[in-house]
Nucleic acid binder design. Structure first.
Length: 425
DNA sequence: TCTGGGGTCCTAGGACCC
DNA sequence: TCTGGGGTCCTAGGACCC
């Protein structure tokens, strides 16, 4: 038995926890740079605001006071997510965090009494302890648990249980094939051509036919819909890449601006790698102009990777590689709107070091690497203790440059910053 | 005027090996 | 007419997820 716990309108719900005056009102949260809508409360959905809708198109609602809008406050959402996940751990020994707002509880063959009652108890507790409303889907496989969760949300219930055969068939029959987990926009088109409309239709397809015409992933989806668990023994592997990218507040054609932006992103990526104990083998840098500008001929998008001689998480080495990549893709007279830095082929740093010792007996270079490693540790420690950017690299430039993203409507970091705690009068 | 960020996996094809 | 068999590694592109 699996339970999928999914937070309702997660980012919007986080904002409402500290703004009870917004309960019952239409709330939306915007992406970075206040670009598009990424979360909507139920009330906002009823205004016809869709996911990914550009902000400027819904601004009129905001100006009329009908919709309340927030810039994204990831520090708050990450902390609230952590609280929700901690709560879930009280209820199941195996909590698989699938994204910032959802987790699979894997009960295996464990008995929890009446599943629906247990599911409701989980939802009640999460709400009482964190203020976040959740929906619960219960089924024999992860894909079916996703279906059940959607179904609960659609019907306005908190819990949907499709463990028994008749419930499974009943829900699948009403479930659109395009909403099935693993069936995206592109696959829906050919599937419909074969006459498949609902999740039930999909579940009746011969799995091997599915593999032949699509891929092994879709074959597994079909099996999962029939109750055969195929995604349950995923060993949580360390991620293989780290990406940091941002759209700019305003476009720039200056190499020096891009150098600063890329250096900032590369620094952030290296910090992430160190915190996870991994080292990168290559640094990929990508830049592009705006896709939406009228003059399509001037659109430019290009990226390239620079290989590191020895895999590393040392900011100094990563900065040098990122700069080299940037210089290879930069061209004059383009209005750059976004830059991306990706650390590629991440491997465990201890493993990489022992290999290096095995094949490289240059003790001087090893000593230098060790010293550089201690320097990075000290940087991280200082910034952790005294706040981000207490010490930083000159290459990152000053605070608040032109390319920095707009985030003009951000709520306080209520739970993570001592100066921004909510005040109760 | 104004359009996000961060991941994963699979497949096909080419280069190369014996 | 007919053109081996079995592998690895890498990359680009396409699909998916939230």
């Amino acid at each position: 038995m699996f339970m999928l716990i999914d937070c309702n309108s997660f980012f919007a719900s986080c904002e409402r926890v500290f703004r009870p005056d917004l309960v019952g009102r239409a709330v939306v949260v915007l992406s970075n740079n206040d670009g598009v809508v990424v979360a909507r409360s139920r009330e906002a959905k009823s205004f016809g605001i869709s996911m990914g809708e550009p902000y400027f198109r819904i601004k009129r609602f905001v100006e009329r006071g009908e919709v309340v809008v927030f810039s994204s406050n990831f520090e708050l959402y990450s902390d609230m997510s952590r609280r929700v996940m901690r709560t879930l751990e009280q209820f199941c020994p195996s909590v698989d965090i699938y994204s910032i707002d959802e987790a699979f509880l894997d009960f295996g063959g464990m008995s929890v009494g009446e599943p629906v009652v247990y599911g409701r108890e989980i939802a009640d507790t999460v709400f009482r302890w964190t203020g976040i409303p959740v929906s619960v889907g219960i089924a024999a496989t992860r894909t079916l648990a996703k279906v059940a969760n959607e179904s609960a949300k659609k019907s306005g219930d908190v819990v949907c249980d499709i463990l028994c055969e008749s419930d499974r068939l009943g829900v699948l029959r009403e479930f659109d094939i395009g909403d099935v987990w693993g069936i995206g926009r592109r696959l829906v088109v050919p599937l419909r051509r074969y006459g498949l409309r609902t999740a039930l239709d999909l579940s009746k397809v011969e799995p091997l036919w599915m593999r032949k015409h699509f891929s092994i992933m879709q074959e597994r989806t079909v099996r999962e819909l029939c109750g055969e668990s195929c995604f349950d023994n995923d060993i949580p592997r360390a991620r293989r890449s780290i990406q940091v990218s941002r759209s700019f507040g305003s476009a720039t054609s200056e190499l020096s601006d891009l150098e600063e932006a890329v250096a900032s992103f590369a620094t952030r990526a290296a910090e992430k790698a160190r915190s996870e104990g991994t080292v990168a083998s290559a640094v990929y840098v990508h830049v592009n102009t705006s896709w939406y500008k009228k003059d399509k001929d001037s659109y430019y998008s290009n990226g390239t990777a620079t290989t590191l001689q020895t895999p590393t998480s040392n900011t100094i080495e990563i900065l040098a590689a990122a700069r080299k990549s940037l210089h290879q893709v930069f061209v004059q007279n383009k209005q750059y709107k976004k830059a991306t830095v990706i650390l590629l082929n991440l491997v465990d740093s201890d493993l990489a070091l022992s290999q290096k010792k095995l094949f490289d007996d240059d003790s001087y270079s090893l000593l230098r690497r060790e010293k550089a490693g201690r320097l990075m540790c000290s940087l991280d420690e200082i910034n952790r203790k005294f706040g981000r950017r207490t010490v930083y690299f000159g290459a990152e430039g000053e605070q608040n440059p032109a390319w920095q993203a707009n985030r003009n409507m951000m709520s306080p970091r209520y739970t993570t910053n001592i100066d921004e705690l909510p005040i109760v009068r």
